[in-house]
Computed example of a mutant assay.
Amino acid sequence: MLAGIGLLAAVTVGLTGCAGSGGSAPAASGGISEAKAKTATSAADFGGMKGLVASANAEGHLNVITLPPTWANYAKIIAGFKKKYPKIAITSANPNGSSADEVAAAKSLKGQSTAPDVFDIGTAVLNQNLGLFAPYKVSNWADIPADFKDPAGKWYYDYTGLMSIGYDSSKVSTPPTSFADLLGPSYKGKVAIKGDPTQANEAASAVYLAALQSGGSADNIQPGIDFFSKLKKAGNFLSVLPTQATVNSGQTPVVLQWSYNNLAFGAAGGSAGNPNWKTVILPGSALGSYYNQAINVDAPHPAAARLWQEYIYTPEVQNLYLAAGAYPATLAAMQKNKTVNEATLKTVGEPPANFVQLTADQATKAGTLLSAKWRAAIAG
């Protein structure tokens, strides 16, 4: 179990999203021109943070995408941005979408005011679409470890959880202690993952953890694909996208997903959560996968996009990630600078020593194998 995971369920997770209406992106009167904003690589290009804020206020809008309110505290994060910058409305599109959906939206909406300005995107999909991202370095660039960011600033890690098993204790009499348990008859028709592993990083990470737990490795995820093939043949694998509603109704009584999302489905979800929902981190290798922040090279609101990135990497927001059970990218720097919320960190627990994350090359290789093998593995 993740240290303090039972206590973490008491951490409040915001459950109401914030959205604004769409709008066009005018030239940044009161700041630099829109053309210059699109090529700005730091706040210095705006004359400093005051200039960046002025330019973003002139645009008056920000489009984010695939940020569920309960995911890593994004309801509070979005609400905090709106409170801090009230002249900037936010449209939060397709909150339950995948990393692949983010890319598809950027391509199909290119040149339109509704295109996404920023991405929160999985590594495998990011690496396949590097041409979509604009270089930009946030003011506390040095707080992000060197191996957590692109040297040019096209992307940078923001947070990671640990891949976990969530289950409804009122419907699962024997708690899972291993992946092998999930193949048993008591789990028939009960196990779900967060979408298509060839499209969604969270779903792919469930396969990667299955590989680690079944004799595979970050360099060999085939055992994970084989596990899900067995799960399907046993009649235990559900082709249902799990949500709070499917968890509460009992339709998806077991879900493999990030720890912060399983926690949000339980008591931490407040009145909307399932009080019987438990979260398990299996012993052995703990699988994480940092998501990446990036700016759309064709962002319709380029200054607001850059201001969002500055906001995301403040200790305020990095601590909000932590409060949801997600380890922020700047955690080490915050500990050194004494800006981390120590009470929250104590509740969540330090990142595990046996943490495994696929490298960019490993994720690309794994994604290629999934694309070739996944559908055949779960056919029938």
Rank of each mutant, 00 (worst) to 15 (best):
N127T: 13
Q128M: 11
Q128W: 08
N129P: 02
L130I: 12
A134S: 15
Y136L: 03
K137S: 07
V138N: 07
V138S: 00
S139N: 04
N140A: 14
N140I: 13
N140D: 14
W141M: 02
A142C: 00
A142H: 13
A142V: 07
D143M: 01
I144N: 00
I144G: 01
A146P: 00
D147H: 04
F148N: 12
F148K: 10
F148I: 03
A152M: 00
G153C: 06
K154I: 03
W155P: 01
Y157D: 14
Y157T: 02
D158I: 11
D158Q: 15
Y159D: 11
G161S: 13
G161T: 12
L162F: 10
S164C: 06
I165Q: 01
G166D: 08
S169D: 14
S169E: 13
S169G: 00
S170R: 11
S170V: 03
K171W: 04
V172R: 09
S173K: 14
S173A: 15
T174Q: 14
T174D: 14
P176I: 13
T177A: 13
T177Q: 14
S178W: 07
F179L: 07
F179N: 04
A180Q: 14
D181L: 05
L182Y: 11
L182K: 09
L182H: 12
L183V: 14
P185D: 08
P185Q: 04
Y187A: 02
K188D: 06
G189T: 09
G189V: 04
K190C: 04
K190P: 04
V191E: 03
V191F: 00
V191N: 03
V191R: 03
K194P: 01
K194T: 11
G195A: 11
Q199L: 09
Q199H: 02
A200P: 00
N201K: 12
E202D: 13
E202A: 14
